[in-house]
Design a protein around this nucleic acid. Structure first.
Lengths: 116, 116
DNA sequence: CAGCATGTGTACTTTATAGTACACAGTTAA
DNA sequence: TTAACTGTGTACTATAAAGTACACATGCTG
């Protein structure tokens, strides 16, 4: 699903029961012009900056990492982590690239619970 | 160490025993103007694009991921991997953020050798 | 039914990115 | 000693990113 398409769907859903989720009002709350948000939702322009996407995620109750991914971006805090130890993380991520979700989840849990 | 500084040092080292590593000749081989490479090495302008950095890494015998990191970038193939499963990888990377190198290396090996 | 709210079209702007093109002075090598 | 090669200063360019500003027709509502 495209970024704008997804945002529009979610916003319209919220609008159905709460009129505070109009294009204009959401735009105002996340700090952009209404015309811009409208264009973003219709895919007429590229998705906004990371900061605006975060604000939008907050507003819509969505996972910022997911919304960023839909926008073709990766959270800058993750980039920072990788940038600090590029070989280590590059190796790991390429290793995990083809693993199924459950295997990666297992890894996450192992690290979280284990004595690492 | 800054990107340009590092590149200059490495290139000068190679140049010491092989005159094919002048600014001009390296620039030509990686496909940029000599003046531009000169400015990059002296930090007068920002580091080049990912593609040029890759060519430079190849040329200098350096790890592209490391050079990219010095340039403040992350390899686009890694971004792609994360973008495809943002929640999973975001969770994992944030979990690993503070782990020591050896722990992450252990993880890499475990995944590579184990039955995942 | 007047008035505010709504979504969107059009036109423009600002800043960053990623460089090119050319000239010039100093260095080296034949 | 001249021809080529070297590094760099200056000026410029093209494209993308990330929006703003305003006008307009439509629609709801109190």
């Amino acid at each position: 699903m495209l970024f704008g398409e997804y945002v529009r769907k979610k916003r319209e859903m919220l609008k159905a029961t709460d009129r505070r989720f109009s294009v204009r009002q959401v735009a105002r709350r996340i700090g952009v012009e209404p015309a811009y948000l409208s264009k973003v939702e219709r895919g007429e322009v590229a998705p906004p900056s990371e900061a605006k996407i975060r604000a939008l995620a907050e507003e819509l109750g969505e996972d910022p990492d997911v919304l960023l991914a839909m926008a073709g971006k990766v959270s800058s805090d993750l980039l920072e982590v990788i940038r600090k130890r590029p070989q280590l993380f590059a190796q790991l991520i390429r290793e995990l690239k083809t693993l199924p979700d459950h295997a990666i989840l297992r890894l996450v849990r192992e690290v979280r619970d284990g004595d690492w």
